[in-house]
Design a protein around this nucleic acid. Structure first.
Lengths: 354, 354
DNA sequence: TTTTAGCACTCAACGTCCCTGAGTGCTAAG
DNA sequence: CTTAGCACTCAGGGACGTTGAGTGCTAAAA
């Protein structure tokens, strides 16, 4: 059977209405739509066809139709109208974003809250490193009797440090030597490059302070390995409860539990390989618990080799047009915010803190 | 009217049963309790008295009794039996805790999840600094053309750093001088001590690199000011939905919203001034939204001048004995964990990362 | 051939009514 | 002071009928 223009129009009408009302949509309601110059009987035939084609479903014989997952998919891909953000919306998003987002982890939390608020849905926000880093430079600073600070300057221009206390006496000369050795041998290496043999070699060249080498190497390894780790926040889960499809507490709990757990931890990774805004409708979700829910997500640039990701989870009946519009706008604004050199008074500074 | 021993026994019975069943408790059920050698009629009289005294309530005339807030209060303070953790419980808590808790913020998140799991209730976890910190030592490391790393060693032995890039040429000598000036003038100061006049004085003594001073001072101020800030996580909210009192979706949403928002941000502060485990029953909660819920919380030591706090939120009908027992054990174990010098291979090291 | 009016049919949702049973308070006897 | 007995209350749940939105099909109209 062919998907005529009229069928598409009917389908769009059904999805639009169902998104608004959460009630099965009948032929009469569609017939009464403006621009729909046919009687309910005609619509009825079209709807029967659409049902046969798998785009609509019927909860029971004497009820209206609701979109199937395939119906939503078609809607998202082809039918939905562009949603244009109102001035009010852009303004409120902007003013929310403009607040200072100091530390990355606080930023992730903040963004999640904002997105959740803007969409009235649970939101996910995450930040992760683009790729593996290496150490560009080692520094060792004496910090009093038997303690020194290890400072790593990474290839991403981040700085990481650790205060190390030892039951040993360390001299400035020891540290200078050690730093030189490390800089000579360990810079530019990934954790995998650091073999036990290499470690041995370094320890012999370190001479008297050989015992410090393992501590330094261990911390370096640790830092590089955990470097790509994702920072993720989920918030606003309770917003689901306001929606009719989650009045069924068990259903709500299932979805919320899957949000709370680490089952979502795959999402940011999925997103990183995609471009633009991605919509996962119902069963397209990998997680079984989300088979009746949809996910909309998009990514943005943070700078400093960081990638951000925001997304929301909601009923398959969510207002895709509005949600994708808001999410995209959010992502755009955030990218811009981080791209523009912070209007520091004098210098341009990259922050890396605690 | 006097609160006789028998009345207390009846009250304890009612609370215990109600905690187990979430159903109003009738006189017959109490009469059938072991150790309760009276007929239901007698119990009925006692229950009528307890109702008059405000310890019990009656949902409607032909229903059993449920404890009032005052009833719970009395129960928590005097009546409840000590709950002894089983070997299984202590073992599972221990093994959960033993996992490495690297960074403080990750630790807070982890602990929240564990507590929520152990109690099957939403949990709050927070960490915050005990008091203000000062800078013990400044270091400036040249990191290539026009950029250097500022390293602050704080009085708490934490290390904080920032990579600063400037459109200027900086020499090693400049930095040495600057570091000396900062160490001479800024160490041991709180943000409030740093007046504009002092800033002026430092800038003049800094000579050619005067323009760097404001950047350094700003970052220092920022660091010290944000030092005491609390790090808080709430998790497991969906667990409420499993409890009969929150089958009413609206009620659940109210409570969960108040958990999600920053209305809880006062709690950690409240706790810091208390000792031991604190129970807030229903209306004793400041937040109006929690008037039908209870909060149990306790604190623990993290070391490095950090204080931790864990708590759970649940229905007033929660199993106070079990929850307080588990929470206290958690707190104890965590304190121990952080107190014991990490069994590092060679040295004893304090970690401060990223 | 396509559209539409008409009609019989279906069925969830809702309200009404009644019954059941748990639990109560009171009274009078033990 | 305790308890057996009894009349009373009332939420919860099942049975039943009504309502109305929506359907599919057919036959006439365009």
């Amino acid at each position: 059977m062919e998907l005529t223009e009229r069928k598409k129009k009917v389908l769009r009408g059904v999805v639009d209405l169902y998104i608004r009302t959460a009630e099965p949509v009948g032929s009469k309601a569609i017939a009464e739509l403006p621009d729909m110059n046919f009687s309910s009987a005609t619509i009825r035939n079209e709807m029967a066809d659409l049902t046969a084609m798998g785009y609509l479903e019927q909860p029971h014989t004497s009820a209206g139709r609701i979109p199937s997952a395939a119906g939503y998919r078609l809607y998202v891909d082809e039918l939905m109208a562009d949603y244009r953000l109102s001035m009010d919306e852009t303004r409120s998003i902007n003013s929310a974003i403009e607040e200072k987002m100091a530390r990355v982890d606080k930023m992730v939390e903040k963004v999640a809250k904002l997105v959740s608020q803007a969409t009235n849905l649970p939101a996910i926000s995450a930040a992760s490193r683009a790729g593996g880093a290496t150490v560009k430079r080692f520094d060792l600073i004496l910090a009093g009797q038997g303690s020194f600070i290890l400072v790593l300057l990474l290839s991403t221009d981040e700085v990481v440090n650790k205060l190390i206390k030892l039951p040993l006496n360390i001299t400035e000369t020891d540290l200078k030597l050690l730093a030189a050795v490390c800089n000579a041998t360990l810079t530019g290496l990934t954790p995998d490059d650091i073999t036990p043999e290499l470690l041995d070699k370094i320890m012999t060249s370190a001479g008297t302070s050989a015992s410090l080498v393992p501590v330094i190497v261990e911390f370096t390894n640790d830092t590089l390995r955990h470097h790509g780790s994702t920072n993720m926040v989920v918030t606003g889960q309770q917003r689901l409860l306001g929606l009719p499809e989650y009045r069924d507490v068990d259903k709500a709990m299932t979805v919320m539990t899957s949000l709370d757990e680490d089952s979502l931890s795959g999402l940011p990774a999925v997103m990183m390989n995609e471009n633009g805004t991605k919509v996962l409708v119902g069963p397209e979700n990998v997680a079984q618990e989300l088979k009746d829910s949809s996910v909309v997500m998009t990514k943005f640039d943070i700078g400093d080799g960081l990638q951000g990701m925001i997304g929301v989870v909601g009923p398959t009946r969510m207002d895709y047009a509005k949600v994708t519009a808001r999410l995209s706008y959010f992502a755009e604004s955030l990218s811009k915010l981080f791209a523009k050199p912070e209007q520091a008074k004098l210098p341009e500074a990259t922050e890396e803190k605690q």
